[in-house]
Nucleic acid binder design. Structure first.
Length: 364
DNA sequence: GGATGACCTGC
DNA sequence: CAGGTCATC
């Protein structure tokens, strides 16, 4: 049986690329709520799917190491769109070329061309609140996710909590995604395709899997994309301006302001998109003395826009990236293990300030 | 525009 | 109630 790869036990099978921890922290980046499928399979080792392949990643101070598993071949020609004859030969022949392609996939997924250190300096200079948390939470980086996976994962997030979302996305892939490989006792699947998600049986199937009312949103959004927009539509939104992409997404059932902004930011290259939820709104009022729309009781469309504009003005064109660093403190209070918060103390101040505020408001 | 309530499920 | 969306008033 194939095992999850561990770095110390087979280093020669691993490949690497240069990447400082200050530019990328795997643990924070993969567990901060922007993606729901990565798991820490052993200490410091993260296993997940990129581009239809299963990867295990780990890192040392200046290096990102990766192990790429071979997909189990679906015996009996189940894989209809990959004629195997010449593909396998070229694959085994040119391993250095493969390595460059693989490294490029990772650079793309982690957007390593964006210099996070420079951005942190700019955000810290413009915003003292950011400066206070940035020393502890370095290397929090926006992923460039597959738009389909991002969209349908985030449709699952409405009125929901992280632990349940993770289970739902897991079951979604297991039930409807193409099998990739098995490692230890775990089966890895690709994210379902649009055409699979659009099948009419899908709603009932997902209801049985505990998706609730979101089951219909998922199926109908997939169907609407295929029927009225076309297979390439989602990907093509990478090439249009942020406001246009945002409004386009909002025509889909189950996609409102928040989900549209998440998809724009996390998969459609809109680094200025700031997903605004009630928590971000509280932060804006408490930490940034945000006073516009003071009388509003609910998160209206105008409040969304104004708060987004507020942070874009504060943080600049990569405001969405900065937002995710700031939001991670909230994540820490909900789902992170305490050791991530350990060494420096300022973080504890922030952390306890936050949790005490939360308990106060929730008791009200 | 803005406010309200229903909507699935589970910890 | 949970990191929301939709229909309705």
């Amino acid at each position: 049986m194939t095992r999850h790869a561990v770095f110390s036990s087979g280093a020669k099978m691993w490949r690497s690329l240069q990447c400082a921890k200050s530019e990328l922290r795997l643990d924070l980046t993969l567990a901060c709520g922007q993606t729901f499928r990565w798991r820490e399979t052993s200490e410091g080792h993260w296993t997940g799917v990129i581009g239809g392949r299963v990867w295990t990643l780990t890192q040392t101070e200046d290096t990102l190491w990766y192990y790429l598993y071979k997909n189990q071949d679906a015996a009996g020609g189940k894989n209809k769109d990959t004629p195997r004859s010449d593909k396998e030969e070229t694959q085994s022949a040119t391993s250095t070329q493969d390595a460059e392609v693989e490294a490029e996939m990772l650079r793309d997924y982690f957007q390593l061309h964006v210099k996070l250190g420079d951005l942190y300096r700019e955000w810290g200079a413009a915003d003292c609140h950011f400066k206070e948390i940035s020393d502890i939470f370095t290397g929090v980086r926006m992923l460039r996710q597959d738009p389909t996976e991002c969209l349908f994962s985030f449709i699952c997030t409405s009125n929901n909590h992280i632990s349940r979302i993770q289970g739902m996305v897991e079951r979604l892939c297991q039930a409807l995604g193409a099998p990739l490989c098995q490692l230890d006792q775990t089966f890895y699947h690709d994210f379902p395709t649009l055409s699979t998600l659009a099948e009419s049986r899908v709603e009932e199937r997902l209801r049985d899997l505990g998706f609730g009312y979101r089951a219909r949103f998922l199926q109908q959004s997939a169907k609407q994309i295929l029927d009225t927009n076309g297979l390439q539509w989602l990907d093509s939104l990478r090439n249009v301006p942020y406001p246009e992409a945002r409004e386009a997404l909002r025509t889909l059932p189950g996609v409102g302001t928040k989900v549209a902004d998440c998809v724009c930011l996390m998969s459609l290259d809109k680094s200025e998109a700031v997903p605004v939820d009630t928590h971000v709104w509280q932060i804006a009022k408490r930490d940034y003395k945000y006073t516009a729309n003071n009388g509003q009781k609910t998160l209206t469309e105008k409040v969304h826009r104004d708060i987004g504009d507020f942070f874009r003005k504060l943080w600049g064109p990569y405001a969405g990236w900065a937002h995710s660093v700031s939001a991670i403190v909230h994540q820490a209070s909900v789902s992170f293990t305490v050791d991530l918060l350990l060494p420096p103390t300022p973080c504890f101040r922030f952390y306890s300030a936050l949790t005490s505020r939360d308990s106060r408001t929730s008791k009200k």
